[in-house]
Structure formats: structure tokens, C-alpha cells
Amino acid sequence: MSSGSGSKLSHVIELQAKKQGSYLVVFAIIMIVVALGVAIGFSYLMSSPDDTGGGMLYLATGAPTIVLIMTALVIVPMQNAGAKLTGYIDFVKSLPVSRKLFLIADVGIWALVTVPAIAISVFVAHLIFAPGYAISWTIIPGFVLMVLSCFAIGYGYSFVMPAEPAMAVSQLIAFTSLMFSPINFPLERLPEWLQSVHEVLPIYHMAEVMRASLAHTSFSAEPVSYIVLGAWTIVGFFGAVRFLEKA
């Protein structure tokens, strides 16, 4: 592992970026719209924008999490399932490089796609509602951890599962994460059994870490959130790498 694998990584990034090309740009724009939609559009659902329960801050800090979940747990798994069906994954596996490079390159590209949406939605929400952002330095490690855990799970399940069920799961995640996950509202509003489910699943913890990073004066994340995300990261990447390395 020397400069050789570094330049190989750059070629794999070139391969993946050029293959998807303008689609990545279109997708980055769609994600900006989605993020603004969550931050601004959902505010109409609330009785009054200056809702004292901190509702606006929930939406404004939930939007970036929705962007990551939509990208890493819905769109990318759909892509991967399609890539499996068309034989593109087999092509990637037959390239003369370490197959982990493909994972690193692809995660890097898709993580970059989410950055404009997250930055713009936070900025715009701040201008319109000034919901009380207080950005902490933990946003950097927090963002890295969220990106890693999100993509680890997305790649993990879409590689390990057969293509068709993986596509179905991605749709299920899209729906339930928007409606039944404590991203845009406090966990306590959910029925107790669903609360316990979310203690184990990563989505709630992602939202917690994102909130603590974006508004550390109003929210804090328990250490357990970081641990749960770390565990999902390891399980997800382990599954994805195992699938790629399998002969």
C-alpha cells in the first residue's frame, strides 16, 4: 500500500464519477430541494412558526439527517441493486484493484453529493427562521461518523441482500424514516414500543448526533448514540466488504 494504491484510488474515483456524471449533479440539486422542503415545507404543518416547543429547530436540524438517510439508505442502495442486476458490480469486482477502493471511492463521491444540500438548507433555514443554530466543533467528527454509519448500512444491506428485496427495503426506509422516525420530532412522541426499536436502529441516533452538532446549546447527544452509530458502521462495512471480497 503505497502511492500506487493512492493513484489507483484516484482512477477508481474517476471511473465512478465519470460514469455517473451529470446524474450526480442532478442528484445534488434534488437533495437541496428535499432539504429545503423538509426545513421550510414541513414548517407549514406546525400551528405557528414560533412554536415554543423548539419545533422549528427540530425541523431545521432534522433536514440534514433526512438528506443523509435519503442518499445513503435509499438512493445508493437502489443504485447498488441496479448495478448488481446489470452486472456492473461483477465488472467492478474484476478490476485489477483492491475491491475496497471501490467502496471508498463511491462513499466519498456520494458523501460529497450531500454536502451542498446540508450546507444550503442550514444556511437558508437560519436566514428565514433563525431557529437557534449553534454549530459545535463536533459537527466535523459527528458528520464523519454519520456519513460512515449511513453509507455502511446502505452499502451493507444492498450488497448482502438480493437485488429485488433490497430495492423494496430502500422504499420502506424512505417512507418510514420520513414519517415514523424521531428525526423531525422528539422521540417521546412515538409509542413506547417504537421508541425501543429506535434505541437500537441507527436513525434516531443519527438525528441526535446531528442535532447536538448543529445546535449544541439546545441539544446534546448521549455517548450511547455515538457507540450505536460506531457499531452500525462496523457491521455495515463488514457486510459490504465481505460481499465484495467474496470469490
Binding site: L15, K18, K19, G21, S22, Y23, G87, Y88, D90, F91
Partner: peptide, 15 residues
Amino acid sequence: PQSRTPLGELTPRAV
């Protein structure tokens, strides 16, 4: 590569 392998926006020269 197998013929059905999609190249997306990659051109023959680039790939």
C-alpha cells in the same frame, strides 16, 4: 466486460 455492463456517461476514450 459483459455486454450488458452499463458505461453510463463514460466515453469509450475515458473508460
